[in-house]
Write a protein that binds this DNA or RNA. Structure first.
Lengths: 106, 106
DNA sequence: TTGACATGCAGGTATTTACCTGCATATTAT
DNA sequence: ATAATATGCAGGTAAATACCTGCATGTCAA
């Protein structure tokens, strides 16, 4: 997994919107996705290419259509390998705060 | 919380490295952080400004020094509000896969 | 088979971004 | 007081990015 590609892909609001759309209904065509976007089809294609490069989206051709499927695995891996570390810090900060408050009670 | 600023901030490897460094040792000065970066101090400042704008880092001035503290809360909020949704999808895909495999056994 | 439809491909442009250098200011230590 | 240290501020540049238009190709349906 290329974490950098995943983070870069998530860094753009249009691409996050695309993932949201696919989360609502998986397997949509390019045209379907474009209906919800307000930009040229070619621009949407470029965004989808980046999502595909980050392995966040997989595609299948069906006749003249291209179907897009979301792949949540890289998102999960990024969370496990990177975000979780800060989660621990967050909890320990909460713990420290609690200790401090308890200390003030006495 | 401005999710866009958070995602944008995380989209750059230097800024993720800065968060990593602060996770190892919180409250570092600008100079300390720069020792681990391999770019001009002024460039690091710009990255830290973005992290601060995204509320991922807070700073305190101590004399002529500027101390940087990590704030894991926005990261947690982004996870809760955005990533978790795809987590559910991931689990349901695993569930579907399991169903399918069990079906093939018969 | 021919017209409509879905997508691919090849540029072109304006904005954003990630760097840099040079100099100014503020604080500490000798 | 003065030198060293830590940071701030103001541009300037090259590359990346997010758009676009125009045209080509492939597929379906009447």
């Amino acid at each position: 997994m290329d974490a950098d590609k995943v983070f870069k892909a998530l860094g753009d609001p249009t691409r996050r919107r695309l993932l949201d759309l696919l989360c609502e209904q998986n397997g949509q065509t390019l045209s379907q996705l474009c209906e919800n976007l307000d930009m040229a089809r070619q621009s949407a294609t470029q965004h989808l290419d980046l999502l595909e490069a980050a392995n966040l989206v997989s595609t299948v051709k069906r006749g003249r259509e291209k179907l897009h499927f979301i792949n949540p695995v890289p998102l999960h891996e990024v969370y496990e390998r990177w975000v979780r570390k800060f989660e621990r810090q967050r909890l320990s900060l909460l713990h420290d705060l609690k200790q401090e408050l308890e200390g003030e009670d006495q």
